[in-house]
Design a binder for these strands. Sequence first.
RNA 1: CGGGGUGUGGCGCAGUCCGGUAGCGCGUCGGCUUUGGGAGCCGAAGGUCCCGGGUUCAAAUCCCGGCGCCCCGACCA
Length: 486
Amino acid sequence: MAENKGLTPRGEDFNAWYNDVVLEAELADYSPVRGSMVIRPWGYGIWENMQKGLDGLFRDTGHENAYFPLLIPMSFIEKEKEHVEGFAPELAVVTHAGGKELEEHLAIRPTSETIIYHMYARWVQSYRDLPILMNQWCNVMRWELRTRLFLRTAEFLWQEGHTAHATAQEAEAEALQMLNVYRRFMEEWVAMPPVTGMKSESERFAGAVRSHSCEALMQDNRALQAGTSHFLGQNFARQFDLKFQSEAGQEEYAWNTSWGVSTRLIGGMVLTHGDDVGIVVPPRLAPVQGVVVPIWRKEEEAVAVREKSDEVAARLKKTGVRVKVDGRGHLTPGAKFWEWERKGVPLRVEIGPKDLAKEQVVLVRRVTSGEEPRKEFLPEAQAVAEMPGRLEAFQGALLQAARDRREANSHRGITDFGQLQEIMDGPGGFVYTGWSGDPAVEERVKAETKATLRVIPDPEFRSATAPTRCIGGGDAKMEVVWAKAY
RNA sequence: CGGGGUGUGGCGCAGUCCGGUAGCGCGUCGGCUUUGGGAGCCGAAGGUCCCGGGUUCAAAUCCCGGCGCCCCGACCA
């Protein structure tokens, strides 16, 4: 494939590549307000497909959608001590409205635990009112000092699930269940396989008892926290008086969880699959899974070619493929090829006069794996029939490639601090070591290597042999994963 | 919030040192020819040179002061 114009190659400057590719693929654009962005139709279409996938999984696990307001009384935010300390630096606050200063200032939600548990308290009297399993799709605002398109913006779109339960066990199970939902979604839709596990104290959500996380490894070997699920214990229930009468007639505080993923997932998708030509969108997320490009020379040909293109598109639509015919007359086929590749459409169907004569189409993959040809000449009927299967295979190949890359860049059994430092100074990636649980070790690692403790991995991600030595010296109590993070 | 860079038609840039008609490429619009990997020719439109002040006969250019944006670091989904 020829070199792409306009995009900084990944190898030259990865961050510049990321910015270029997000803008050039028309996912998003900068807005006039620093730190906020406009999500353009192509990017928003991907987000809508993410929403559909996640929403289905939420419903399958018994959750309902609702909507809570954008503005939260400052006094609410201030109720939970850790919560306010965690979010105060990045709060945006409405102080004036209707031409005068407000008696009580209103925070623009950075997350909605406080308002939601306040409302739950009104709705719950008895254990019979539990559990409450709710989710909302909304925007939130965190006044970040340093922002990046999709990865960290002042305003972003997300979903936040909030549940209330009668017992701690049930709430803990919920937090783990949703972590697993996220994991499945990231694997099966985004083709971005995370390592799941628990956060250390220092990385825990402000106000949570325990935070669980999905950590994905990007192409530049930095970790992206792609989704989190929190067991909140009774911390918020106590502050918001969320109580119920138990079966035994006792008054008890409810147990809560909250969990969220955001448009950051789009950034993760770009950083996982993109190449020097543009982004690559996994078929399940692609607003257009197959683009049909008609090719002609003379007007007489154009009519027949367009007709055939529409016909093939209609037949593809019937097989459930999201398809678009690019019949624009002022662009050459080559220009269209580049454009749709830059935007990451998985498969392309080319139909020209030669194909009409042979009753064939040309099928081109955005990326290939193994011995797959990039371009194939197939009988029209076969191409149509095989398209859904090929999209599935494409989806699977992306996941496999991402998983292989993650494992190839995971360094296990590291016991020596110098080795950890060497990896972080060099190639980077996930580094598995033992840890005593002492925060001072985290601080030392961060200070000397810039890596942070991403996650205490769940059993299936742990190394075959449990480490015995802590990376900071002494005995290990657990295995942990270090990486430089986004 | 510190360090660096940058601000000139929609986009990318030159011009700034050394003041003197605001230019180039891409894109856009119109016409004709084109279309199997980023089309060609002809014509056209499009600019408070980031903002404010100052110096000067004259400022994109020199001086002073502001602002925006991007990148790099400290904090974060």
